[in-house]
């Protein structure tokens, strides 16, 4: 392009006038909807979270809502469960997604069909999945425990046991979301040059060594993506918890998002909004550094 000097000058003057063909008002429709429906409420939430706000009155009370949040066991439980759910689901999706990706890129028959089978749950209504697994996880008549009984294992009381309930829901979330994780991992594996594996084989590396020394380090961008996505999704999750346990038994499987809904339903709007702000902070504090760290290593 730069070989003909005069051309460059002409191009430059033209590129200034050409700007008007990309008008700034193209941002306007999207910006207005985003601003009104998302940005303003998000900013306003910081104020509303510091008010005592019910159907009848609204007054400023400073940080009382937050104090209540951290002192009431059933609210605090929601915060702890949010972390448990976020971390177990993203760990599960990364590990299983990687394992499935290796399996589904290896030499087997009809890989495409298998990939579709693993991916399909991603598209199915989460509420539908939740109801289905609530039935499958029934301690007595559920299919899972009956199958376990058939091989002589005494199945756990999945959603009934307060200590286990949140992890049972996490297990279903992993089942539901692992298909997307797998596809992202497959895209990552496809980007690794095959020469590396050939060289490793010539040097006598076992399949296990190849996985730890080549596959895992080089699929770091894909692992970063899966971790980020599933962490943010997991921390925000609501549908599956609500469909399966409604936060129960008691409040043993409440997460922040279900606490927000319960407080909203009960008419404690200020407290509900405080929950929202806490969720916002949790995501910013937990997810952003992890995202930044994993993406920094990418280059």
């Amino acid at each position: 392009m730069n070989r003909h000097k005069p051309d460059v000058r002409i191009r430059k003057t033209k590129s200034v006038s050409i700007q008007s063909y990309y008008p700034m008002w193209f941002f306007l429709p999207a910006g207005m909807i985003y601003g009104l429906m998302f940005l303003v409420p998000t900013v306003a939430s910081f104020y509303f979270s510091m008010t005592h706000w019910t159907l009848f009155d609204q007054r400023f009370i400073g940080l009382d809502n937050y104090r209540e949040f951290f002192n009431e066991p059933f609210l605090l439980k929601g915060l702890i469960n949010t972390f448990l759910f976020g971390f177990t689901t993203s760990a599960g999706k990364v590990v299983l997604g990687m394992a499935l990706a290796v399996l589904l890129t290896s030499n087997i028959y009809f890989r495409g069909l298998l990939r579709s089978m693993v991916f399909f749950p991603v598209l199915v209504s989460t509420i539908g999945i939740g109801i289905t697994f609530t039935m499958l996880m029934d301690p007595n008549s559920g299919l899972i425990n009956q199958a376990l009984a058939a091989i002589g294992v005494d199945g756990p009381r999945w959603l009934i046991d307060p200590d286990l309930a949140i992890f049972s829901v996490a297990l279903v979330e992993i089942w539901r979301g692992v298909g997307l994780a797998t596809l992202i991992m497959i895209a990552g594996l496809a980007a690794i040059p095959t020469d590396f594996y050939e060289a490793a084989r010539l040097d006598g590396a076992t399949a296990w060594q190849q996985f730890w020394r080549i596959t895992l380090p080089l699929s770091r961008p894909a692992i970063a993506t899966v971790t980020t996505l599933s962490l943010i999704d997991g921390l925000r999750t609501f549908d599956l918890v609500w469909a399966m346990t409604r936060g129960g038994p008691g409040f043993a499987s409440d997460v922040l998002a279900s606490v927000i809904y319960k407080q909203y339903q009960a008419g404690f709007y200020g407290l509900s909004t405080a929950g929202n702000v806490i969720l916002f902070v949790v995501i910013a504090v937990v997810a952003l550094p992890i995202v930044a760290y994993l993406n920094r290593e990418e280059r």
Binding site: P41, S45, Y264, L279
Partner: peptide
């Protein structure tokens, strides 16, 4: 932000 931040429910209803 739009991808990550959970929407603020009650303030949106207020809006």
């Amino acid at each position: 932000s739009g991808l990550m931040i959970p929407p603020a429910i009650v303030p949106t209803i207020w809006m």
